[in-house]
């Protein structure tokens, strides 16, 4: 009935983050990391593709951007529940799902703003410092990259909100989230390699099982869709597809999108599924104290 309330809640969620010094420090750090890595990459020589696109340090982005989702979501529900503010909020004319929808919307909005902000700062800097040329194809690919990065971050937002719905303490939520982040973004490839070689005795890089298991990781889909690398995690699986993701200017963007449609679909589907789980968990929970 009152769709407006979703926006009121979304706005409050966004405002809470924007006024949170910790969040702002993270935003600044994140932008600095992206900016510095882009600048460094930009000054290196690249063999292939567009220099502009090659300058975007996907490895760095893929590892650190999920933190945005985590920071935005890890205490979203548990904090309100713990403080009893949820108790009060629920006495006002809004449905439960409005609350979660508002929180998701506000966080997604901020995530999008941060990603767009960091991409614009990085690309803008490259253009100014190196006098690079921004071609239409680059622009489209950057737009696609921004969108995919957004979905990638939203996956972690979904995970963080789910955890924050389940656990009782915000600190627990943060711990679990960081563990999941470490697992997915840093160690997934290495753990998978180890496990597969222990259980199958095969050389990990050739194992079909490994490629199947990689599909579980959002990082895998993100890395493959954007630069054609199967795994971007630390000491991860070293596999590359013939097309270097949507950043491979040898192929048209539509060709790239077609080639990596499964990855892209997964990147879109994962947050959707997570959101559905979030809603179910939130609605089933007795939120009142």
């Amino acid at each position: 009935m009152k769709k407006n309330n979703v926006f009121v809640l979304a706005q409050k969620e966004a405002a809470d983050h924007l006024r949170d010094p910790g969040f702002l420090v993270l935003l600044a750090t994140y932008t600095a990391i992206i900016f510095a890595s882009t600048y460094m990459y930009g000054s290196m020589e690249h063999q292939n593709n567009s220099t502009l696109l090659s300058s975007i340090n996907i490895q760095m982005i893929s590892r650190f951007t999920p933190l945005i989702g985590i920071v935005l979501g890890f205490d979203a529900v548990v904090r309100e529940q713990k403080s009893g503010s949820l108790n009060v909020l629920l006495t006002h004319p809004l449905f439960r799902d409005n609350i979660l929808a508002g929180k998701l919307l506000g966080s997604m909005l901020l995530a999008a703003s941060i990603i767009i902000f960091s991409v614009f700062v990085s690309v803008g800097t490259l253009l100014i410092f190196f006098g690079l040329e921004l071609r239409e194809t680059d622009l489209l690919r950057i737009a696609a990259f921004t969108l995919l990065t957004f979905f990638y971050v939203v996956i972690f937002l979904g995970i963080a909100i789910l955890i924050s719905t389940i656990v009782k303490e915000a600190t627990d939520s943060l711990t679990y989230n960081v563990v999941i982040w470490l697992f997915i973004c840093i160690l997934f490839g290495a753990i998978l390699k180890t496990l597969v070689s222990i259980f199958t005795g095969q050389t990990p890089n050739e194992s079909v099982l490994l490629t199947h298991l990689l599909n579980l990781s959002p990082l895998h889909h993100y890395g493959e869709a954007i630069i054609g690398r199967a795994d971007l995690s630390f000491m991860g699986v070293n596999m590359e597809s013939t097309i270097g993701g949507i950043f491979d200017t040898r192929y048209s963007l539509s060709q790239c999108l077609r080639e990596f449609r499964m990855n892209i679909i997964m990147l879109i589907l994962m947050p959707v599924v997570l959101f559905i789980i979030d809603f179910i968990a939130f609605l089933r929970k007795d939120l009142t104290l």
Binding site: A10, Q11, K12, A14, A15, L18, R19, G106, L109, L110, S113, I116, F117, F120, V121, V123, G124, T125, L126, L127, I128, F129, F130, G131, L132, E133, L134
Partner: peptide, 30 residues
């Protein structure tokens, strides 16, 4: 060196700052 690229870059930085200001003004208020 592409001067248009540089201008575009300045434009993009400007847009980024504008976006930040816009988001803070639009959503940061309580």
């Amino acid at each position: 060196k592409s001067s248009s690229g540089g201008l575009l870059g300045i434009g993009m930085l400007g847009f980024a700052v504008f976006l930040l200001v816009f988001v803070i003004r639009k959503f940061g208020r309580r």
